[in-house]
């Protein structure tokens, strides 16, 4: 039986608006499971999932692990430090080893763009992209969409501005694809050195000043400023960045309407976002974290119907 999402979740670019809405509609009722005393349903009993992380991650990996466990899957975490072997070779070897261990799904985080697709094309198991280089981070995009949809009711015509280091951000890319497909208006705002040169071609507005973004937007998705960017010369200093692009209480107070504040975490308080904004009444940052588990449960559920090995086993056992 085919899954409504296909075999893998590699990005939001190639999903339809209907497929994205299906994930959100499925995630909605799944939130209730995490409120139960026994936070577990038997849906994925017997499925083996490998969380294959080539890059450090606490939040995303923990969120996936909770989602997997609440669906009763058996999970193994593999953290692989960047090795001296060329990345392509490492992935192929890893893929072969995983196949030999008879697993059903792989959640992969990798520093190279396209790594998830590379793996998906070489193994039978379902592959979920948990972030590949600067390409996509689809489950983060989906949880942002769910959070916004819950607050706004619909995304149609809503204005969302993605602020900060859009150039290096897979979160930004997944957000832009998802938001535009669901009918939202999207803008980006940040120093020109941190915006992709052809960003307008993705159908987004560009603001050079955070004040303009705040004037325009219904929601701001404030990206984490990778501190390495300063050493690389993209920005002069963190203080300077906060002074020009920081999302501060004073700036939000001048907004013509209440603006929802999202942040994918982990935050640099006092750099891209001030503490009184992050902890303020319009912040939905912790809702994003709660929704993250539900969205990942929904993705696991929707992909699970498309596991050739499990389907074979189910037929044999019937």
């Amino acid at each position: 039986m085919t899954s409504p999402l296909g075999k893998d979740l590699l990005g939001l670019e190639h999903l339809s608006a209907e497929q994205i809405s299906l994930v959100l509609d499925t995630a909605e009722p799944l939130k209730e499971i995490s409120e139960r005393t026994i936070k577990k349903v038997p849906t994925l009993r017997g499925a083996t999932i490998v969380n294959l992380f080539f890059e450090a991650s606490t939040r995303t990996r923990t969120s996936f692990e909770f989602a997997e466990k609440r669906m009763s899957a058996d999970t193994v975490n593999i953290a692989i430090a960047a090795s001296s072997v060329s990345k392509g070779e490492t992935l192929v070897d890893t893929a072969r080893n995983l196949e030999a261990m008879r697993i059903d799904m792989v959640v992969i985080r990798h520093q190279s763009s396209g790594a998830a697709r590379f793996l998906a094309e070489r193994i039978e198991s379902n592959v979920i992209n948990a972030g590949d280089g600067t390409h996509e981070h689809p489950t983060q995009g989906l949880l942002d969409l769910l959070t916004l949809r819950q607050r706004f009711g619909t995304l149609k015509g809503k204005r969302v501005c993605i602020c900060g280091d859009v150039l290096h951000s897979r979160v930004a890319r997944s957000n832009i694809w998802g938001l535009t497909k669901l009918g939202a208006e999207v803008a980006v705002c940040g120093p020109r050195s941190l915006l992709p040169s052809a960003i307008e071609q993705m159908g987004v507005h560009v603001f050079d000043r955070i004040e303009q973004a705040i004037e325009w937007a219904d929601a701001l998705n404030v990206l984490r400023l990778q501190l390495e960017r300063m050493q690389a010369g993209y920005i002069p200093s963190l203080r300077e960045y906060n002074r020009v692009f920081g999302v501060t209480r004073e700036r939000l107070d001048r907004a013509p309407r209440d603006i929802l504040i999202l942040h994918p975490g982990p935050m640099n308080r006092g750099v891209e976002i001030d503490s009184d904004v992050a902890d303020g009444p319009h912040s939905v940052i912790l809702e994003q974290v709660t929704n993250g588990v539900a969205v990942r449960m929904a993705v696991l559920y929707l992909l699970a119907g498309n596991s050739p090995r499990l389907a074979e086993a189910a037929k044999g056992g019937a």
Partner: peptide
């Protein structure tokens, strides 16, 4: 009760399109 997640036929018939609310 929505029993979708407790079905015994996920692997043979695939995921049901929409999961309802349990309350």
């Amino acid at each position: 009760l929505d029993i979708t997640l407790y079905r015994d036929d996920l692997q043979t018939v695939g995921p049901r399109p929409v999961v309802g609310k349990t309350h």
